[in-house]
Design a protein around this nucleic acid. Sequence first.
DNA 1: CATGAATGAGACTTCATTCAT
DNA 2: TATGAATGAAGTCTCATTCAT
Lengths: 214, 214, 214, 214
Amino acid sequence: MTESRFSSRASEGRRPRAREGDKRERILRAATKVFARKGFHATRVSEVAKSAGVADGTIYLYFKSKDDLLVSLFEDRVVLLLATLERELQKRETFEGKLRCVLELQLGLLEGERDLAEVITVNLRQSTRMMKQYAAPKFMQYLDAIARVVEGGQKSGEFRVDASPHLVARAVFGALDGVTMTWALGKADAGGLSRAATQVADIFLRGLSARPSP
Amino acid sequence: MTESRFSSRASEGRRPRAREGDKRERILRAATKVFARKGFHATRVSEVAKSAGVADGTIYLYFKSKDDLLVSLFEDRVVLLLATLERELQKRETFEGKLRCVLELQLGLLEGERDLAEVITVNLRQSTRMMKQYAAPKFMQYLDAIARVVEGGQKSGEFRVDASPHLVARAVFGALDGVTMTWALGKADAGGLSRAATQVADIFLRGLSARPSP
Amino acid sequence: MTESRFSSRASEGRRPRAREGDKRERILRAATKVFARKGFHATRVSEVAKSAGVADGTIYLYFKSKDDLLVSLFEDRVVLLLATLERELQKRETFEGKLRCVLELQLGLLEGERDLAEVITVNLRQSTRMMKQYAAPKFMQYLDAIARVVEGGQKSGEFRVDASPHLVARAVFGALDGVTMTWALGKADAGGLSRAATQVADIFLRGLSARPSP
Amino acid sequence: MTESRFSSRASEGRRPRAREGDKRERILRAATKVFARKGFHATRVSEVAKSAGVADGTIYLYFKSKDDLLVSLFEDRVVLLLATLERELQKRETFEGKLRCVLELQLGLLEGERDLAEVITVNLRQSTRMMKQYAAPKFMQYLDAIARVVEGGQKSGEFRVDASPHLVARAVFGALDGVTMTWALGKADAGGLSRAATQVADIFLRGLSARPSP
DNA sequence: CATGAATGAGACTTCATTCAT
DNA sequence: TATGAATGAAGTCTCATTCAT
């Protein structure tokens, strides 16, 4: 994973071209940690600043507002999922493989990043404006990607056709989200998400299969 | 479902014995509506008051704080789900029937109550204290109930045994939560959730089935 | 001391002519107790009501406002001191006797009424408007009475003349106030104030004496 | 008495290290003025802020709460009296001199600071928590210092022994407090307190004297 | 006369954001 | 770039007072 993941799409027009290109990153990392621990609203900008080892004002050199911190977090980390997903989906031949890929990616990317997982599954929903105006479209885009896999599988004859692709997409995403949330809020044991991915994939794939189970 | 579902278990020890016993209820209903529309944090107590047609201070005669409003909402409406679930599960013979029951109830109860659905799937997560200290245990309790159904099905031979009951429970809950969330945030077409319940149930049941699909 | 001490001078125009003429009194007594315990501002009207065993609204049938409660307390209990003082002063022959009378009355009246003592020495000052607009004039009137005793003693040759009567009055009053306050805030041992009166009187009388001490 | 008397011992751990080291001082001065004029409870924090020429929020950079403002006022200004008293008492040879010193200091320190005098004699008592938990102990400490002077005088044979040192201390303090209060609430004529100190001292000293007056 | 649920003005305090240094 | 003291708008909640019953 190169610097590309810290692409500057977000918060367009930021000033610092960054000699030490890591200050923005430090802030983002600190935000993830503190947001996960205390929740978005309960977290003070000054706490993120202290945790990042910068002055309060410095945050505003890299982010437009506290909300932008959350948006940028989403942008920088989650958008990555979409890009990776599209790329990986190409590589798989079967739609079964593609769907399994979706599951593995969504869970695999968060494995080992418990804080990020918690922010995405729990905290992201704390900002309504974000959910409705910003994150929702991204979610939809992601759900569409999943839905296309399902639809493709139906056309190819791999998946049963008596299920709405979009509904399935929502169910798949929700299932993974639910698994991740309880994992993040609970024990968060190592390897838990990877193992979960396989099991959940098995269930969905069998459930969607056009062919009788063996 | 009669008025009894709005029992006043929550916030025990409230003062007013209420000449018109519906003031507390009016506030709760207003809160659900406004929270769904603007989100918990973005909603001002005064907005709930205005929407309920009472004075700001009146809210504090029935609820300890703004947070308590959300807790009570959860208590009064969602806890109901648990009770109903336990009751309904008894009536079903097969575990397939029981699992289908879970799905139908979770979605069915929210059908027609879009605001409530949105509050539960989105807004409830806006209060971290609530999520971690209060709602989480309730969720766990609910998940346990689902897990027990899965476990029972495995023992009876109805369900395949190569899936962790708790993981399945999380996936099932998450899938329904995801479906509800997109429904609440999106079109929320009539009957959508009921139809969804059937389809999602089909997928999970087939996915979990111990017998080869026909 | 007859019912006359609960004369209805205060809060002129009160409605209740009182079948049970003790409700106003109960409220006043409750107010004294609660004010002494928690302070005037920290005391809620509802607390006085509960302590008096009446409804909140009932208080407003007997008193115009919370402030009026304090004013009335002052009126009903302290104004009594002035009246008694004037009466008693007449009976004493010497000015030494008159001054001793002042001391004994001020302390004697509060002896056994610790709550009242605390309200007067401490709580009364919590309402600025009261201090400046209401109590101050009463204090001045009381101080004047003391000053006249001193002045009389000076003219009669009993007291030394090199001390301002008004200053002495303030010092005497303050000394008693200080003794009362520490008594009320502290141990408040029985008989303490009476014994104190004698000692303080001895000091002031010797200090003011025109004749060399024996 | 230099600026050093406004040392910043109080509210330890304040954030601002203060570019212009007088902002805290400005707030304290403004608070003294406004508290004296309107009373503690009737004064709004925003009024203190306006009077100090700072924003409302700035007050909370230097003081934890409105109450802390009063406590700090007490700390910064009154505690000084104790320190000065102990120091000055050392310098006097006779106990007569020491007692006179107490009187002169207590009144002298407030002379010219009418607002402060009013806050201490009147407003300080407006916060019950303050009186009981905070100020009372300080008062006791101060009273003890006076009592020790009296006791010393009795042992040295300067003062008569038929008076409780603690009672005398309370009377002395009260007398000065009473004089100050009426001075602050009333005319507050220049030099009044100094002249008063001498007269009150004369009375108390003669009253306490072990030897016959000349 | 009595009640106590309801009112609503207004206070304290927080904290995201700014800007002079 | 970086800082962090200062700002001030705005929210939650309290509580004296009212008034329909």
